[in-house]
Design a protein around this nucleic acid. Structure first.
Lengths: 242, 242
DNA sequence: GGGGAGAGATGCCGC
DNA sequence: GCGGCATTTCTCCCC
């Protein structure tokens, strides 16, 4: 066991990535507090000292520690533990390893960042560049306009000169999207000292309750889909072509 | 390579958990669209057919597929791919494996669920059971009261009989917490046909802008910490005791 | 580092 | 399934 401990602690120090699977129990204390009784899990320690613990189901880690934490394998009698702490964040985690199923360490290198398309940001760019999609005669003035009470996706005026706030959602707009829009419209009215300012939600869908709230407050809904405009290298295979 | 493909495809079918590391390129198309150039990553396939792909930094997976997806290893000439699809969600992912660093498969069993303490729910329970923490003379009427415009954490009346809506936040309350509170207060006034209803944010902290907005609307802030009341088995070691 | 908001958010609970 | 919302949210961007 001591050789194993020594090997893994050295791998951590070297900045290697460590994956192992074990039957374990987990205690965590920090922003919240948790206990997880024994079961089989996958544990991942990254070079940036992020720790992730996954159960064999679900997308989200059941426990984790943020980057810049400190991890070490220690023994207490015949029992093996992995202890993690992040003193700066006052977060602590203890993993009691009942049985080790497998482990691997490797020096991994990855300097690339994901290119993502179909975001809300692209949607507001699209509306800024194609204002008639919002409505005939719409003239955009700014994107991502920052106010002290939040920032506005697209801001402009309609064909009559009335100011318009557009809030984009890439999926279904909900109640909070409507209250968010309302907050911006009120703030614009206050800041400009005017009483007329329209509000528009631009999204592919809106929930029934959100639509009803939207109508109550005199705002309107515009059916818009987020664009997909990911540029791929010439000749590269597209998904589904295999 | 064919033996490897056969081995992993069988492991998937058997409901084993698969972890491997490789230099790879990733394309995804579904709710959004993404491309990630070559780099070293960790890939995890769970028995519930969740797929997670991690770069050697950060907490969140760079790409993933939800549970109930279909995964298979295939070769195209001398190149190895892992393809995933979720027809129901119209999501597709392709992983081109340039070099395999290591892999493991194992049958993992875990029926336990995490016990978590320090949540907002516990905080509203605490205020419901200890109303004087909200303010002297506060009488709670309900918790998690569901309205068509959202549900209210704690609802009651003060010592003068005026209705009170309490919105809890386990960490720092922000602008959206205040607009959320406002939505409830307005809805209560409308539903009950009254003009007097107070609003209180109960949280350990509140941002300066949120506090200013809170004051603008005549609401108030109550400094409250979320309780930590995780019950541990008698005699079990607490964290930090090692 | 705080503030504000999006996310391919995920997960939970209620209807 | 949708709806509404918390999350040890995480991540990004801007001040």
């Amino acid at each position: 066991m001591d050789d194993f401990i020594e090997h893994l602690n050295r791998a951590i120090k070297r900045g290697e990535t460590i994956v192992f699977s074990s039957n374990c129990e987990i205690d965590y204390k920090g922003r919240a507090e948790s206990h997880l009784p024994d079961g089989d899990r996958i544990i991942l320690i990254k070079p940036d000292k992020t720790l992730l613990i996954h159960q064999p189901f679900g997308s989200a880690p059941v426990n984790y520690m943020k980057a810049e934490s400190e991890h070490s394998f220690v023994r207490d009698g015949e029992t093996l533990y992995m202890k993690s702490e992040n003193p700066a964040l006052k977060e602590y985690l203890s993993l009691k390893i009942n049985k080790l199923h497998f482990y691997n360490t490797a020096r991994l290198e990855d300097g690339k960042r994901i290119e993502l398309s179909g975001t809300e940001r692209e949607m507001s760019d699209y509306l800024y560049d194609n204002p008639s999609v919002v409505e005939e005669g719409f003239k955009p003035l700014s994107r991502e306009e920052h106010t002290r009470y939040g920032f506005i996706d697209v801001f402009g005026h309609d064909k009559t000169g009335t100011l318009v706030v557009v809030e984009c959602k890439r999926y279904r707009a909900d109640l909070s999207a409507v209250t968010q829009l309302r907050r911006y419209v009120e703030k614009i009215k206050e800041a400009k000292g005017i009483t007329a300012c329209r509000g528009i939600i631009a999204a592919p869908e809106i929930s029934a309750n959100a639509l009803s709230m939207l109508n109550d407050w005199g705002f309107s809904f515009r059916h818009v889909h987020p664009p997909n405009r990911l540029k791929r290298a010439q000749g590269q295979k597209k998904i589904g072509e295999y």
